[in-house]
């Protein structure tokens, strides 16, 4: 039961942890103080420090009040986790091959793979949708608007 109460307080706890992480590690390590500061002006660490203290105070307050209120939340295990990983894998492969085959061709294959492979839609409508959308994207954005997208090193 306490696990569910802690889950409800997770938002506040995350803010508290982030605030502590900022104050104790991230700000000292990744925000260097300049050699000289303009007089009367806050340095580069001022705002991050205010944020860190804000996160610590509000995060602790939120976590404690939520826990004490007895509110419970149970995170459900996603039903379609396998499908999500499949879609994620398809996207990852698409991004990896994009520099070689180009963004639009890789995107067309990605759309077909997701709609018919991961979502079980019929192949012919999936292919037609992907081709029409990919073609429209190329026509409108690349040819008409001149927006650059990777062309793919395989095609020269």
């Amino acid at each position: 039961m306490n696990a569910e109460r802690l889950t409800a307080a997770a938002g506040g706890l995350s803010a508290l942890v982030l605030g502590l992480l900022l104050l104790l590690f991230l700000i000292p390590a990744y925000v260097p103080e300049p050699a000289a500061l303009a007089p009367n002006a806050p340095g580069p660490r001022a705002i991050p420090k205010i944020i860190a203290w804000g996160l610590i105070i509000l995060g602790a307050f939120e976590a404690v009040t939520t826990f004490m209120s007895g509110e419970r939340i149970r995170w459900k295990r996603p039903e379609g986790l396998g499908r999500l990983f499949l879609v994620g894998g398809i996207i990852l492969v698409t991004l990896l091959v994009t520099p070689y085959v180009g963004m639009i061709p890789a995107g067309i294959v990605m759309m077909v793979a997701i709609t018919s492979g991961a979502s079980g839609q019929r192949l012919v409508p999936s292919v037609l949708t992907a081709l029409v959308f990919g073609g429209a994207l190329y026509l409108v954005f690349v040819l008409l608007a001149g927006i650059p997208v990777p062309g793919g090193s395989l095609w020269g």
């Binding site: 996207i91 698409t94 963004m103 995107g107 990605m110 759309m111 709609t115 959308f133 954005f141």
Partner: peptide, 16 residues
């Protein structure tokens, strides 16, 4: 299921 893949491609092109 038919809409999200094109939107995803649009997101990728837009971010790039």
């Amino acid at each position: 299921d038919m809409l999200y893949p094109p939107i995803m491609l649009l997101c990728i092109v837009g971010a790039y």
